[in-house]
Amino acid sequence: MPKMPAPADAIADWRPTPAMAARLAAWAAGTEGSSRSSALIRIGLAMLFWSRWAGELLLYRDQSPAGLFLAANFFLATALLFVGYHSRLAAVWTGSVGLAMYYYFGFELGREPWTHHHTYLLAVAALLIALTPCGRSYSLDRYLAVTRAERAGVPPPAERGNLWGLRLIVVQLSVLYFFAAFDKSNHAFLSGARLEQIFLWFYAGSDYPSGLAWPATIVSVAVVALEYCLAFGLPFRATRRYLVLPGLTFHAIIYVTLPVYTFSATMALLYIAYFDADAVDKVIARLQGIGSAAPAGGEIS
């Protein structure tokens, strides 16, 4: 009678099937699609950078050489990102400015709340959008490309490109949700105690409101469960349809109840990366009555 393998042998023998690995690789790095969803994220990120820091970085605010240098870089990089001139370079520039704010001005010089997660997320999102064809739609780059094509008497370049940057945004969001849930997977949070403390901190002061205990516990468990679901469910079409609305509602509630700055808005914007780029393109085309850059067949999913 053959001997059953020990668990360790079973793990050692486990291999992803070549078909699965090929599908994953194709999804991650080999997908071409419409550039319009990447462009929407590019424009949204520029606006989020402005809404978060434009006021703080006005030239009169910090007139030190470092402050003026930062402000000049910030406004130039984000303006280029917004209008889409040398879009991918502008995205790298904007992301680098964000990381300089986070690491140097935040951690080194102690400027707060620049070390917070919303700063890092915006900076990283800008760097990741640089890996997408974000300049091929809704941009000055696109206008110039079409103009050049018209002059040359050739069709305008396709609004398409490799979408691996969007895949990395999906990975980033799932990692974020997973570790946010992991951080809360303890008795202190799940009992409701941490949520009660946060409620007292921002709202109630040192007077515990009667009837808070049960709602705090229920909401705490729901938040952790939702974050795990968002981490593992949003990347897949079958589960995404049930999670997008709860995810956006979750961020909307956080946005209006806690000082998360641009975090919720950034997350909501980056949700575009979860959707099939060609399907997003088709929705845009349908809404605007314009031609689609996507081949036929895609549905919003």
């Binding site: 997660h117 990692v175 974020l176 570790f179 946010a180 951080d183 941490r194 009660e196 403390q197 946060i198 409620f199 007292l200 901190w201 921002f202 040192s206 806690l258 998360v260 975090f263």
Partner: peptide, 12 residues
């Protein structure tokens, strides 16, 4: 790390 609001409320 992604430990949002892990310090808020501590000390209340």
């Amino acid at each position: 790390s992604w430990t949002m609001f892990s310090a808020i409320g501590v000390g209340v």
